[in-house]
Simulated assay, not measured.
Amino acid sequence: MNFNFLSPVSDLVLAHNELLSTQALGRKLKIHSEQHGIPDLDDVEIAIIGVLENRNDINYIGEEFQLNEIRKSFYSLFPGIWNTTIADLGDINRGESVEDTYFALKESVSILIKKKIIPVILGGSQDLTYANYRAYDSLIPMVNIVNVDAQFNLGDSSKPIKNNSFVGKIILDQPYNLFNYATIGYQTYFNAQEEIDLMDSLYFESYRLGQVSNDITIVEPVLRDANIVSIDLNAVRGSELSLNQRYSPNGLDGKEICAISRYAGISNKVTSFGLYEYKPSSDDDMTSMLIAQVLWYFIEGVNCRVKDDDFQDESSYQKFITLVDDQELVFYKSNKTGRWWIEIPFLAEVNNKLKRHTLLPCMHQDYQDACNNKVPDRWYKAFQKNCV
């Protein structure tokens, strides 16, 4: 298996790991080391990959970075009641060009997903999400991306890719595989009104910071439907982070970002997860520990996954039908988990790739709204995209 572009975890981190309790997470991982090489991946379900690439950061001034502090923090945590085997495959170093790094990441993600292993990417700049997305070209026909971010990152797609414009490239570059793009925690004053309008006109979803902080559960359905989850650390409130990492006095707090991460883990569809825009500083303890805890909650979520979206067996769900403006809406509720879905009707005359999107995750509130003659927002947007 070709993982030539991965460099091992540093001896410094491994030496630190030896001093930890035998119960600590770091002592239970399969780790890519200089001494033993890449571990056997046969029973691995989650693999951590660092990507030391930040040259497409719009603020890049030549600085390099390492992920050692994050690893030390993560290794020192204790696992939950987990039954997944986790590997740390080390880092993808900068390529000769940024495109070389993209290629290495794309290949690594593709290999892992084919082996039914979830890659967890620890990155520099968030444009690496583009390479993560391209790994799906040969895997599935349509991709859903959730971006936890203060900004939409649509940018000017006619210009070279940067960490504030990679979504424009994802939307406009062939092959066109993007079905839904959703942003969680966006802050209006960081986004041009044209971008906000564009998100609406493309029927993409966006959840304002205030909405998310008011009720964190509203983001669970969109994460349940995601294939790729990408987190920009700039979405986190400055007071929760180390000096270099601070971006905005407003943002998600530590509990909220961990809850979002756990929802991503619980989702049966999420097959890759990335954390980006890490900027180390001398007082790095806060940022590295928060990232470690976000990773911990994602893995916790993966261990709590329940297969509840197979609606073949009639005893496993309840079905509810309601009328909204002469439109029949069909809801399903899982008896196992209590989670809800809504059916999107197929338009026979439309040639679409949507064979797997007949059921859309939703909330109990959407059903209650439909009973009160209000069309659920997620259903409306998915239906409109289906018509395009």
Rank of each mutant, 00 (worst) to 15 (best):
V13P: 02
L275D: 00
V375F: 12
A15H: 12
L323G: 05
S239H: 11
N250A: 09
K333F: 03
D308C: 06
Y263D: 13
F273W: 00
E53L: 11
P160C: 01
N93P: 06
T358F: 08
Y332F: 15
L241E: 00
V148E: 02
I299W: 03
D369L: 15
Y207P: 13
I121N: 02
L154H: 09
G338F: 05
D232S: 14
L19W: 01
E18P: 04
T183E: 08
R71Q: 11
S21E: 14
A24T: 09
M363H: 03
R134N: 01
F311T: 01
G210D: 12
F5V: 00
G254E: 05
G338C: 00
K162R: 14
S10P: 02
A264D: 06
Q126R: 11
T84G: 02
Q35F: 15
K28S: 08
Y263A: 15
W296G: 04
D40A: 04
T358S: 07
V294Y: 07
I196P: 09
P39A: 05
F204R: 06
D325P: 00
P160H: 07
Q293C: 07
C387N: 12
I216E: 02
S316H: 07
I70N: 07
M289P: 02
Q187P: 02
P79T: 09
V324K: 08
S125V: 10
R27M: 12
D225M: 10
S281G: 14
S10T: 13
I161D: 07
R339P: 03
L67F: 11
Q245V: 09
G254D: 06
T287I: 04
L105S: 10
E18G: 00
F74P: 00
G62R: 00
T337M: 06
G50S: 14
F5I: 01
D43G: 04
Q35V: 14
A135Q: 09
P160G: 06
G80V: 01
C304A: 13
V120K: 00
N83I: 01
C362G: 09
F103G: 10
M1K: 04
Q126E: 14
P345N: 14
R305K: 14
L290V: 02
N144E: 15
I170E: 08
D42C: 07
R246D: 03
P79E: 08
H32M: 00
F311I: 03
K28E: 04
T287G: 02
D284W: 07
G168Q: 01
N56E: 09
N372R: 06
S110P: 02
H32D: 03
V146L: 05
Y133V: 06
H32W: 02
S138C: 00
D42L: 10
G251L: 05
Q66G: 13
K72S: 08
D377I: 07
E64T: 15
N2K: 13
I291M: 12
V270G: 07
L29F: 11
E256F: 05
Y317C: 08
Y186M: 03
N351M: 11
K106S: 15
I344Q: 11
Q66K: 14
I81H: 14
I161K: 10
Y317F: 15
Y278V: 04
A104E: 12
I49K: 06
A235K: 01
K159D: 04
Y60R: 10
N4F: 13
N180M: 15
V9D: 09
F383E: 07
I58M: 15
L178S: 05
N303L: 06
P345R: 10
D91L: 02
H32Q: 01
I196R: 10
I92D: 05
Y60W: 15
D156T: 00
K385T: 05
V229E: 08
